[in-house]
């Protein structure tokens, strides 16, 4: 093949490749859109799963993940998926621990509560917890707070 022929061929090849990429891209976008629109679209029929009508399970309003009450921040979804299967998120948000104690707590849950290996998610989870729910100093006795004043009626 001489010059112009080879060039034409290359253009054709490039055109095909680009078209292929574009089609693939459109398909991926389509799948993503379909998934976002209806997360159940890829489910096979599986009777062990009960269909529960839900809006957006991961709706965030004012920086709070609505389903769990957890603060939106880096690592949120790792915490939601690994830490709220067995117990309520309320057990997490009530507690204030440093990284060492959270790691000890995770080890305890793995030993006694059937928590799975968290892999590289453990660091993400612990970082989320110590950043968003840090320990507060309380001393030996805190001042009374959140007092709701009311007029005491005669008995």
């Amino acid at each position: 093949m001489n010059g112009p022929e080879a060039f034409k061929d290359q253009v054709k090849q490039l055109y095909r490749a680009l078209t292929g990429l574009l089609i693939a891209f459109v398909m991926v976008i389509g799948l993503v859109m379909a998934y976002v629109n209806d997360p159940s679209i890829f489910d096979s029929k599986d009777d062990s799963w009960v269909a529960v009508p839900e809006e957006d399970p991961d709706l965030i309003v004012d920086g709070i993940h609505q389903r769990t009450g957890l603060i939106e921040a880096e690592g949120l979804m790792a915490v939601v998926s690994n830490c709220t299967s067995c117990h309520s998120a309320k057990l997490i948000t009530q507690n204030r621990m440093n990284a060492e104690r959270w790691n000890t707590t995770i080890a305890w849950m793995q030993e006694t509560q059937n928590l799975w290996d968290l892999g590289d998610q453990q660091e993400v989870i612990v970082n989320y917890l110590v950043t968003n729910y840090p320990p507060k100093a309380k001393g030996r006795r805190m001042a009374l707070t959140d007092i709701q004043w009311y007029e005491l009626e005669e008995e």
Partner: peptide
Amino acid sequence: EIVFGANLLKGYTPLGL
């Protein structure tokens, strides 16, 4: 999120629903 999904319990009902 990617959970170690195989370990998740079948029939588990998420909280809040």
